[in-house]
Amino acid sequence: MPNYNFSPQEMIVVAGARVLENNKVVFAGTGLPMVAITLAQLTHAPGIIPVFEAGAVGPTLNRGLPLSVGCSRTTSKAMYLQGLNAAFELAQRGFCDFGFIGGAEIDMYGNLNSTMIGQFPEAYRRPQLRLPGSGGASDMAASCERTIVIMSHEKRRFKERLSYRTSPGYLDGSPDARQRAGLLGQGPYRVITSRAILGFDEATRRMKLLATMPGETVASVQEHTGFELLVDDNVYPYEPPTQEELRLIREEIDPRGYFIGRKG
């Protein structure tokens, strides 16, 4: 792979920012989603309204990048400041256009695992690897109108079968599976990884390759995916970050490099 002047995390953040539309309400978890939202606010989408599950709605994030969705920096100039119930009730009511989530594993229907690796339910109480748990991810997956998933793109994470389904995507992919389950939002909209931008086929709900990140090809993305991807007819090479996007990330948003890995 050629030597690019940006890290995989920077590419993910830039893609996450670009996919966001102006004047939308975005429910975001800790980490890269916060960087992406801030970048979008500083570029094409100044009207984005962030919602953090711990309680802050619509802050300007000008006190520095929050290190947690519950930390002090989420409240600067917030326009509503309550707690978890209020935040999730907003999502359930339909106020949140996008939810930004992640997980340790994803399947072809956009279902995510952030709970455990091992046999479920047999080994639930003694898993091979215990992960932190749902947090608010399954709530966002259930109730935000559309979700954007950020993933590290490795074969062991893009799996045919999840150990445990924490956050619902299109479930088994059958028509209207989400509606029948009682879920409100439309489901996963984009999966953004270090290797690709992916979406979901309208008919089959299967994950579909839309664009390849710099240095990747359709074949290399498939090679790092543990199930067969659909490939969009118009698959294209994704535009790398601009110098201005990189400057904003490195100098304005995350100057200490908390969430953005630096090229060594």
Partner: peptide, 13 residues
């Protein structure tokens, strides 16, 4: 009553 975690394994345990 709550919408989540419908469709999730969270409910199985």
């Amino acid at each position: 009553p709550c919408r989540s975690p419908l469709g999730s394994d969270v409910m199985k345990a």
